[in-house]
Design a protein around this nucleic acid. Sequence first.
DNA 1: ATATAATTGAGAATGATTATCAATTGCATT
DNA 2: AATGCAATTGATAATCATTCTCAATTATAT
Lengths: 158, 158
Amino acid sequence: MSLYEEQFKNYLKNNDLKYTNERKELLKAITILKDHFHVEDIYQQVRKQKSDVSLATVYRTIPILIESGLITETLSEGDKIVYEKIYNEPRHDHMVCLNCGKIMEFSCPGMEKLQKNICREHSFIPVEHRLELRGYCRNCWKNIKQKINNGKYNQELK
Amino acid sequence: MSLYEEQFKNYLKNNDLKYTNERKELLKAITILKDHFHVEDIYQQVRKQKSDVSLATVYRTIPILIESGLITETLSEGDKIVYEKIYNEPRHDHMVCLNCGKIMEFSCPGMEKLQKNICREHSFIPVEHRLELRGYCRNCWKNIKQKINNGKYNQELK
DNA sequence: ATATAATTGAGAATGATTATCAATTGCATT
DNA sequence: AATGCAATTGATAATCATTCTCAATTATAT
Ligand SMILES: [Mn+2]
Ligand SMILES: [Mn+2]
Ligand SMILES: [Zn+2]
Ligand SMILES: [Zn+2]
């Protein structure tokens, strides 16, 4: 039994929740998914596993996966929420390109330290943080500069 | 004419947009609103001004207010988005209490510097950032500790 | 005053998420 | 292994914030 499964089953047991086939499939799905994913990605992955888990159950299970420390809500793009695995994964924050939507990861221990100081100063007990840098990735910025030089920077970028 | 109005009218003119009565009322509304507010707060404020601006127009105007640099999308609580004024206001970030929802502000120049460095390292051109610390405010944490001591920390906190 | 493109309100539509509820199932206990 | 029961599920309806549609209105350049 993987550490992932161990962690999940422990959480379920401690909360009088059952380890159902659907939850087994959903656990498998997120272990397979890479990087950042949407609710719909999870749903599509269980379907690839030839399982009939309903979308309602996907939604119902997400809070459990979060509570059990396996995934987290990373950021929201428009109305869709982006999730990712966090169990045994290194902490990190995100840069999002405003043009192509690419998500890049980085980590910065110095920043964490500053955050802790600030919390102490305000008697605030931190549980989690979310830092999102929005701007333009190398490629998109190159394209934008080009269009500006050609006088084509009217309305649309893409 | 206030700086606020000046800024707004300039933006409108530069983009072939009209300075309508509805936009006048909405501008007035956000100058009156304090701190962090929701779409519904803006709508309620224009109604207090005895104006019949429709909710659709409130939604339509928000992107314009953002584009013209008057307000910004600060954070999202659940499905509702929280806005605040930024014109001539000092930059800052937010702490949100997971128990009572209180939003506290802070600023940290050191953090801004680190962010710039990271962007440079990744050839990322930053436009804006959003940092949100989630945890428990002084009061809520005090209550929580008390309940733990009394063995009452079963499910609900509040 | 006129022309024209932008704007508006009302209400329909969208789309992600949540709630409902009868049928099913995991699992602790005989 | 059979029983009992609370937890779970799928199907589908409901929510609710936001966006879209379109005919009627309005701001602004000339
Ligand atoms: Mn990530
Ligand atoms: Mn603020
Ligand atoms: Zn990009
Ligand atoms: Zn609090």
